[in-house]
Design a protein around this nucleic acid. Sequence first.
DNA 1: GCCAACGTTGGC
DNA 2: GCCAACGTTGGC
Length: 159
Amino acid sequence: MTPPHYWLVKSEPDVFSFDDLVAARKKGTHWDGVRNYAARNHLRAMKAGDLVLFYHSSVIPSAVVGVAEVSREAYPDHTALDASHPHFDPKSKPDNPSWYMVDLRAVEPLERPVTLDEIKKTKGLEQMALVRLGRLSVQPVTKSEYDIVRKLAKAKRPQ
DNA sequence: GCCAACGTTGGC
DNA sequence: GCCAACGTTGGC
């Protein structure tokens, strides 16, 4: 594996927005609650220092709004082990956890949000998991896709 | 709020 | 191990 790798995570800004991550700047946050195996596998593949596109879902317009970095690599998601927690999963055991989380820290907001609509229309981004596998909440992003999104954010809004 | 896509569960 | 039913995500 040749660092850094690039990723994208989704969050509903009503629940946890990029601004919330910025507000927690020093400390960052536990990216907990992921309960999907494909997403879990991506979490476990993250390395400290990997860059993460932060995407706001379920808002209009949904868009990539910022960049975060992995500040701590995957470790067991304790909310899955806590029976009183809404994310509790009885199948996850302390000695063999099913679910993992990483810590994320804000790096910088994008110059402007890059919307899903724009991503769909941009050459080179057609293969993004965001477009092809709509529901995946943690996804790998290629360097070229990452670079294109950063470039879009620096360019003027289309039309 | 609707509904398509798709992951998960459970009956067989 | 198949597949129908069900639940959830997330765009619109």
